[in-house]
Design a binder for these strands. Structure first.
Lengths: 216, 216
DNA sequence: GGATGTGAAGTAGTTCACAGCC
DNA sequence: GGCTGTGAACTACTTCACATCC
């Protein structure tokens, strides 16, 4: 399922280039997964392909968009506007995929009241705007209290950049992005090559094997 | 294996607090994993625990440190010093775990020559400093050429923040951090709850179930 | 011919359940 | 009693291989 956005991105570039069919070996090569895996993944969306001729890119894009809820708009708040929070808010990758920034929050009086990207930063101790996803860029020590506040405000999905596992009620989704862990995993693979403990295969988003270069 | 750094972090806070034993249910609760999983994970490091009494935190920390290669120093270069690259370089989480910043690179003449964190940004078209890990914060359109250059310079581990799957030779590890994919996955879980396509379970770093609050 | 879609096989990772030990 | 360490069961995911269809 984490691969669908990757397929989507590839299919959209195909559409932009005016190519209207793609087959599973090609899509797999570009996404870094085996052809059979591509077919299995896409088969969950229904029988979209044409045997012998691959997939129509428009049909694919439409189906993936639907299952990802890409047509809906998601209201996102960002809490913690230090270096990382500001970088995210200013990043163009952030707002693709139907996300809409509706609130910025921080605890520091030096930041509260400043404007970033047409939004004014509010005090995190005040009320939070209604939203569906919260992005936490707060220090680890604050992660749990902020999480509790976010949950209390009715948000059920959290993207946590703090290096801290947080506790949430059942029904609330949390995903973690932790740069230092990523570096440690890479460091492990450098020393232990294809050793025990899951050596060899490297993957975060389903990208697991070296991809041969593609000219196109 | 991605869980070892999490265990390590928890164990280190335990040590800092002066508590010298921890058992698998507690460690599991704090890390967001089942006790049996904790024991299975730790058993790969050898029989470290004491039956009936849990694990000695010093022994645990030492063993995890060893298997993570945490005692070694890893030379890291960062390529692309836009908002995200600068935020990472300035972040304190970045340099824990034995990583040492040895080079900064960008393509823009406006950035080349400026100093960040006592390091001067060099031209990415010049020679790259010898390093073991490269962090890419470049636009997606540049990701593959920069990757090729990084690989050619002898680096075998890449952390890629660009929303672009890159192709590398066998033996080179790539990990991806893609914020927009994370948001899309969260959005999917919001609409599809515990549906098909891997619904229900939310996990990035092995954190998969709600953790009951812990007072300590 | 050539690619899809899918049962079946294979693989990886998790959890159970309990013997062994403190 | 309580917790570790681990064979065995289970679950999820990936890949094979081939019948099916364009």
């Amino acid at each position: 399922m984490a691969r669908l956005p990757i397929y989507q991105r590839i299919v959209l570039t195909w559409i932009r280039r005016g190519i209207n069919r793609i087959d599973s070996p090609t899509l797999g090569r570009l996404a870094g997964v085996a052809p059979a895996t591509v077919r299995r993944d896409l088969s969950y969306l229904g029988p979209l392909g044409t045997r012998g001729a691959g997939y129509d890119v428009d049909v694919l894009a439409k189906q993936i968009e639907e299952v990802l809820g890409h047509d809906r708009i998601y209201d996102v708040i960002v809490i913690g506007l230090g270096n990382l929070g500001r970088a995210l808010v200013n990043s163009e990758n952030f707002l693709i995929s139907g996300a809409r920034l509706v609130g910025l929050y921080d605890a520091s009086s030096a930041v509260i009241g400043t404007s970033i990207n047409d939004l004014t930063v509010s005090d995190v101790n005040g009320e939070l705007a209604p939203a569906t996803i919260a992005v936490l860029c707060v220090p680890a020590s604050e992660a749990q209290v902020v999480t509790d506040k976010v949950v209390a405000s009715g948000i059920h999905a959290i993207l946590n950049f703090a290096p801290q596992v947080v506790s949430v009620p059942i029904g609330t989704a949390v995903r973690y992005v932790d740069v230092s862990i990523e570096l440690q995993i890479l460091a492990y693979h450098l020393t232990n090559g294809t050793g025990p403990l899951g050596g060899g295969v490297i993957h975060t988003l389903g990208i697991s094997r070296p991809v041969p270069p593609l000219s196109a």
